[in-house]
Design a protein around this nucleic acid. Structure first.
Lengths: 95, 95
DNA sequence: TCGGCATTTCGCTAATTGACGAAATTACGT
DNA sequence: ACGTAATTTCGTCAATTAGCGAAATGCCGA
């Protein structure tokens, strides 16, 4: 619970999760956005450095909120809805 | 949402919320524990300094998770179940 | 193998958070 | 007013987090 709450305690990371709820809307031009969005697009949307975005995505992944899929030189990130739901339910039950 | 997540991103604060779920169990000897638990008892239970506990309680109060009631020189803290529930529901809906 | 591109990791700095002891504030009884 | 107790605030230091640019790593096509 602690790690997840920490992962959510940052504006940019909350925004990333929100954008990835509906990639087609927030990342126009991303082909097959259902399969995830690449780091570069997220970085451009967030407007900060690529290294910072990479670190943010790693934190969200470690917390279980995102899943990464490598396709050649590209890495696509998308939400892990099951784990997100599991977390909110656990919070509801335990908090 | 950010402030609440930050409030929950600390072990001691999570523990305090957990203890205050059932004060009679975690604070034996606290009279009328339903009306809240005083800072001193929480501090003793947490095992850190009184000033640190005071700061933690302030953070939890500002996030809406706790309510404080002053009774003379005593201040009693208890959970604000409505706001806790509202937060977990909002998280469930929005995350 | 090389060059180009995507992404992660590293090293550094600045900001924020956590913890403490001391000082300040609030409340109470004499 | 004074002394005691509860609690908060303040000042300080240490640890953690956030952000950046550069270096390193991984992938691909020629």
């Amino acid at each position: 619970m602690l790690e997840e709450c920490k992962a959510l305690s940052n504006e940019t990371r909350l925004a990333i999760l929100d954008w990835l709820k509906d990639p087609a809307v927030h990342f126009p031009g991303a082909e097959g956005a259902d399969a995830g969005v690449c780091v570069g697009l997220i970085q451009r949307r967030a407007g900060c450095s690529i290294s910072t975005i990479s670190a943010h995505l790693a934190i969200l992944q470690r917390a279980g909120f995102l899943r990464a899929t490598r396709r050649g030189q590209w890495i696509h990130y998308r939400r892990d809805e099951d784990r997100i739901r599991a977390f909110t339910e656990r919070l509801h039950r335990d908090l």
